[in-house]
Design a protein around this nucleic acid. Structure first.
Lengths: 293, 293
DNA sequence: TCCCAGCTGTGCATTTTTGCATACCATATT
DNA sequence: AATATGGTATGCAAAAATGCACAGCTGGGA
């Protein structure tokens, strides 16, 4: 009888393109991956991967089964979620993911308390960049900053999010005095100059940065002007970073609290979701940019 | 990470209704089944089965996932077949199934030779009653006696099959002399008297039997008249069993040689299929009832 | 060109899983 | 009621899978 798990490993090698990467993803040793693939290949008398300089590429036979194995994967993932959805115990693991800025500013303390209150629940927090896949159960529950979540997830928009233009005190002064060549700090995916740069004289791109907290630090260090969601600069008591009095339209992006439909009746997920909602809601005015300094 | 194999075991318990039966089907010890189900249940905090007097019944949670797990099963089975379908080696296993009467009379010797010719191929023959499921890979290749095979199987009708009415010499004599209360030997699924019994005076059911070779022995022992496919009585040199000169319509049942579509390019399956076809075709006149004794 | 970093294959020790043997239980049968 | 049969749980030994450590290989960069 063939092993379903061997197909699971096949899929992860096909997706990652290497035994090592697959091993890391699956949390096993790379030799296990190697031997499982050997099993699968010799059991069926077919080579599934070709070893190339770019890692392991699927052979024709491998290509042929990829789609059905993917179906199998989706089915088992769904089964797993459906079972966890029936779990009414306040124990077990919650795989939680959110941008680290949200965690650091608002949720670190409440979650610490949560761990004390429910010692049987183990929280596994993922804040590394790159979205965790909720369909795969890479995460059970997520705080996401997004305009609109995918439809197979349920949850709600806790609040919309206001943005503002921030500089440090030094640049605030210079801009007020009509500084030329105003430097901008931008997200890497921005092409050319953003619309809001028209408020400045001869704006120049000074730096691209892909992380909000680093963008904040760049601004604080005097790197220039950046457009950031208000909650981050405004939630810390630091007078050296100032929001410019330039009104921004309310963004259609919001703070979302999300989980998979199949997990909607899980007791521990709901308990945690409730806690996160409570503590995020407390800061709604902040998210909406109410407290300019 | 959850194990796909645990779901495979869940499915087999759900289908068989007991740990022991599931263990036999999967070829493992029942304690393995028991422990795997425990894993699955405790990992998700849900009971999947309720132990009743009739074995293990699915709980609501178990019912909920049954369909998706079945999908997973179909997907992995298909993947497995597709891989075997790419196998161009003349080695490995062939799971073969057929009615034992066909094997005994026509294919035992050819298959013995096949094993000598291809020592790397191991034939696993299933002749026990109850159809093997080709979709599940319980069998790779089948000889079936059926009117029309399911459409996901490919293969061909080697021949149609003629039936005849058989008795032993003693009863042949008595019937010729107008015997009363002629006893019939029938298949258990026949309700009431079959149409062909109208050829006899006051026919009586003597026995039901669910196996062709046993039916033949019953007739030979003088149990009465039976309708059998001609090939079985006519392929053995035994003058004590005689076909009555009563013409039967040609049945729409045939001898089919079948395998799953996904295995159509497997070298060893095709080699074996070719051999079986050759030796069955040699006996087409016999199947059509040409050699009355 | 050489070195370095990352990836893969394999022997060996360890851990995990499995099978076996036994005990226990419930149902059906005598 | 006693016995037999089939199914299930569990301790312990055997077997299998895994991780580890090391070696070999490859491509990119100094």
């Amino acid at each position: 009888m063939h092993s379903w798990d061997d197909f699971k490993i096949f899929l992860s090698v096909a997706e990652t393109g290497s035994y090592s990467a697959s091993a890391r993803k699956m949390g096993v040793n790379h030799s296990t991956i190697s031997r499982r693939i050997q099993n699968l290949e010799s059991a069926h008398g077919v080579k599934l991967f070709e070893r190339t300089t770019k890692g392991y590429q699927l052979t024709d036979a491998g290509e042929a089964i990829f789609d059905v194995v993917l179906q199998a994967s989706e089915a088992t993932n769904q089964a797993s979620r459906m079972l966890s959805g029936h779990d009414d115990r306040l124990e077990g693991e919650i795989k939680l993911t959110m941008p680290h800025e949200i965690f650091d500013r608002f949720l670190a303390k409440p979650l610490a308390q949560f761990c004390v209150d429910y010692p049987q629940i183990k929280i596994n927090l993922g804040v590394k960049p790159g979205l965790k896949n909720i369909a795969n159960r890479e995460a059970d529950l997520a705080v996401r900053i997004t305009p609109e979540p995918p439809e197979y997830l349920i949850g709600r928009r806790v609040t919309y999010m206001q943005h503002g233009l921030y500089v440090n005190a030094h640049w605030a002064e210079k801009i007020k005095n009509g500084a030329q060549n105003v430097p901008l700090v931008l997200w890497p995916h921005i092409k050319g100059l953003p619309e809001w740069s028209s408020h400045f004289s001869n704006p120049q791109v000074a730096m691209y940065v892909d992380d909000l907290s680093s963008m904040y630090e760049a601004v604080r260090a005097g790197m220039g002007v950046a457009r950031m969601p208000c909650f981050y600069p405004d939630s810390v008591n630091d007078a050296s970073v100032i929001r410019l009095p330039i009104e921004q339209d309310l963004s259609n992006w919001g703070i979302w609290l999300l989980n998979h439909v199949d997990l909607r009746y899980s007791a521990r997920i709901n308990k945690c979701k409730q806690l996160l909602a409570l503590h995020l809601e407390k800061h709604i005015p902040l998210f909406l940019g109410a407290f300019s300094k």
